[in-house]
Every structure is written in C-alpha cells, then in structure tokens.
C-alpha cells in the first residue's frame, strides 16, 4: 500500500509542476498586478485545446506549445480590453471572458473532449512516459520560464508593471500608461496559463472542456503555499517563483494522497476552495484580532 502510494509520487510531481507553471501565470496578475483574474479557468483550456488540435493536425510540438501560449495571451487581451477600455471591474471582466472561452474552446475542439493517442506522437511530457523523462522536460521549462520572468520584471518596462500593481496613482503620475501595463500583464499571465494548459493536456492525453474549472483556486493555493514556505527564507523574486512551483507540487501531492486514501473526489473542489478561503482570510482576521487587542490594551491602561 505504502509502496503503491510512493509509486504515484513522481507522476504527482510532474503534474504538480504543470500546475506550478499555471500558478506562475496567476502570480503575475494576482501578486504583481494586484488583479484577481478569473480568465485562467478558461484560458488554461484554450491553451490545452489549441495544443491538442494542432498536434493532431500534425504540427511539431514546439510550435504547438508556442501557439498555445499565444492563444492564452489572446484570452488575457480580451479581459484586459474589457477591464481598461470598457471600465468593467477586473473580476467581472474575467468572468465574461471565461464564458466566451467556454464557447470558443468547444469550437476549437469540435466537441467537449478530444483524446491524444499518446503512442502516435513523440510527446515531451506524458503519463505514458517514464516519470523522470517528463520531470526533466518540465524542470527545464520551469528554469527557462523563471529566468525569463526574472529578467523581464527587472527591465524598465517590467518594473512599470510592478509599479502599476503596487500604486496606480503613483504610476500614472510617473507617466506610466497603466491601461497598457495591465493589458500586457493580463495577456502575459494568460499566455503562461495557456502554456501550462498545453502541458497538462499533453500529460493527461487529451482535452476536456471542463478541465479548467477551478484552476484559479489551484493557482491561488499554490501561491499561498509557496509564500508560506519561502517568504521567510528569501525575498528574491526567482526564489519566490520557485516557491510557487513548489506550492503547486505540494498541492498536488496532498491531492493525490487524499484521493489515494479514498476520499470522495466529488468533494475535492469544495475542500480546495475552503482551504484557500481560510488562507486568504487569515491576514484579515489577524489584523482585526490585533486591532481589538490594541483597543483593549488602551482601555485597560
């Protein structure tokens, strides 16, 4: 039994890294731009569906991945335009795009799910391959991705995205076109999410229009777990991104273990959401608790 469980771990690590890549995409909007972007529930599937259909059409894998990334950026672009040009609140803009993408994803695939016959392709990552092989490819992708992000957010333009998320007023006063930085950030973020979708569908051997549901919650969970682990160790941006990936892996380990122990999988989404709600609420409750403590202290003094 224990050995069986142990045997699931490398596979879980591979899928965990893929969710970690998606979580890095979420990190760009949620942590850097300070926008809760619900587009990801749709764009992860758009990336995956695009990848699947192009692969089946015979395109080489690198090109399929690139186009999946670009498809993701288009999704973010829609949300960005809704949010900036039309002034729709970010959350609602994301939900609207999500609905649009539901239809788009069905049209891309032609039906609600499409299988990738794994044996017919030289897949980069797959449950059919030895786990170490998938892991190696994913680690390489993570390394490149983190390097690109580390560089980008250190550039003049990248810093202006960080400023936008940090202080909108100050950014405009310093001449930053905050509409453009937000649109760019949303597009970039969903591009990474689309790429994660392509890897996920490749690994799992097919597309399913329902696959994206709850992706944002998994992304937030990975960010929260990652922050809890590395924020005390280092404030370095690359380390924090690595923490997010670690968060994705840990999330998936727990998920896999819970399933392995026979937990009702219908309840898993609920459980994830409650855990994330608690962690998001914790800082608020802490602040409230300390504020009331202070008040009490004053009264007693």
């Amino acid at each position: 039994m224990f050995l069986n469980w142990l045997g699931t771990l490398p596979g879980a690590a591979a899928q965990g890294i893929i969710w970690g890549i998606m979580a890095i995409g979420v990190y760009i909007t949620y942590k850097i731009l300070d926008i809760a972007d619900l587009t990801v529930d749709g764009s992860i599937c758009t990336g995956g569906a695009t990848f699947t259909m192009l692969l089946l059409a015979g395109l080489p894998i690198p090109l399929c991945l690139l186009i999946a990334f670009l498809a993701g950026t288009l999704c973010g672009l829609i949300t960005g335009i809704f949010h900036t040009f039309l002034g729709i609140p970010a959350i609602l803009a994301g939900i609207l795009t999500q609905l649009i993408l539901w239809s788009v994803n069905l049209k891309i695939m032609g039906r609600s799910n499409v299988a990738i016959p794994g044996r017919n392709f030289d897949l980069w990552v797959s449950a059919l391959l030895p786990s170490w092989q998938s892991l190696l490819v994913l680690i390489a992708i993570i390394a490149v991705l983190i390097a690109i992000l580390y560089w980008f957010f250190g550039t003049e333009f990248g810093t202006s995205l960080r400023a936008t998320g940090n202080n909108l007023n100050m950014s405009r006063a310093q001449g930053i076109n905050t509409d453009w930085t937000k649109i760019f950030g949303l597009a970039f973020s969903n591009g990474v999410v689309g790429l994660a979708g392509a890897l996920l569908f490749q690994y799992q051997g097919g597309s399913d229009v329902k696959k994206g549901q709850g992706a944002i919650v998994i992304g937030l969970a990975a960010i929260i777990i990652g922050d809890a682990i590395v924020s005390k160790i280092s404030q370095n941006f690359a380390v924090r991104l690595l923490g997010v990936v670690l968060g994705g892996i840990i999330y998936f380990f727990v998920y896999q273990t819970v399933i392995f122990l026979g937990f009702d999988s219908d309840l898993l989404k609920m459980l994830s959401a409650i855990v994330v709600a608690i962690f998001l609420g914790l800082p608020y409750l802490k602040k409230k608790y300390f504020a009331s403590k202070k008040r009490e202290g004053k009264r007693n003094a």
């Binding site: 250190g154 550039t155 810093t159 202006s160 310093q174 001449g175």
Partner: peptide, 18 residues
C-alpha cells in the same frame, strides 16, 4: 527602484535594465 521610475517619467520604458 522608485527613483528610477521617476527618472524615466516621460521617457520610453523599454527592455533595458531598470
């Protein structure tokens, strides 16, 4: 970083180091 942001007020922000 804050000072560098201000130093580029009104200038193009490209992919040079910040």
């Amino acid at each position: 970083e804050n000072l560098a942001l201000a130093n580029r007020r009104g200038k193009r922000r490209g992919l040079a180091w910040s």
